[in-house]
Amino acid sequence: MRIDVTGLTKTYKGGVRALDDLTLTIPTGMYGLLGANGAGKTTLLRILAGLLHPTEGRVVIGGHDVTTQEGKPAVQRKLGYLPQNLGVYPDLTARAFLDYIALLKGLHNRSGRRRRVTELLEVVALTDAADRRLKGFSGGMLRRVGIAQALLADPELLIVDEPTTGLDPEERIRFRTLLSRLAGDRTVLLSTHIVDDVAQTCRTLAVLANGRLAFQGSVTDLVSVANGRVWTVTTNGPPPTEGRVVSALPEAAGMRYRVVSRQSPDLSAKPAEPTLEDGYLALMDQVPV
């Protein structure tokens, strides 16, 4: 399901401009949306999900304009949405919560709905906890309930906002794998500020900065932004002042710094192969504040 965003602007009350004339095309498959906190990612996702009206611009999803009264329900019938701060009713069981959301998504056939809920509880490995109240669930379990509710109507478009925040490493990997598996012929839009999540799951991505599109293309293209700009410096002295230090690793010979910089940060600096994180940081250095 293709998404065409054209000239999208969102200005909140008080004049805060969260999105500024954003034009973007999102193809079918897994797609990453990167950006710092406050870059406008959540605002964009909320507009795509029909939760927020843009100030200007159009958003056409699978041929329907989500900003119109007619287009919004048509898009929402094909949508699965996992918000950044997923909440649940603590007094309902996981099964009851999913049943309620399934009804709201139009799954009115009782036996079909129950079957779908049971299926999804299995997909997210919550079968054993299905009849427990949600108030006793851990953060990871709640995220899995979140992904299950997003998949209830077998959506063509899945929007997930910061899904791995707060998860332990094992849960994060499990979650990423699940998302990749779901992509198939769906569009899965993964918004995150964790570069590694995109590196592990997406081939194409966009980067937002200050409400504008800073980059759109393949992961390889973003990595190449840092070509010739990544260095390692091993020293016992102070960290390099030139460029941006990406990591610092203590070694026998001293502290080994990884630096993204246009020029060599130190005489002893050695060039290194860039990663997606380096490409992202190199890109951010180019973006006007």
């Binding site: 029909g50 949405y81 918000p83 959301i101 709201l104 998504k105 139009g106």
Partner: peptide, 8 residues
């Protein structure tokens, strides 16, 4: 957020 994203 979840409720508002449903077609109801």
């Amino acid at each position: 957020g979840v409720l508002d994203a449903t077609p109801t």
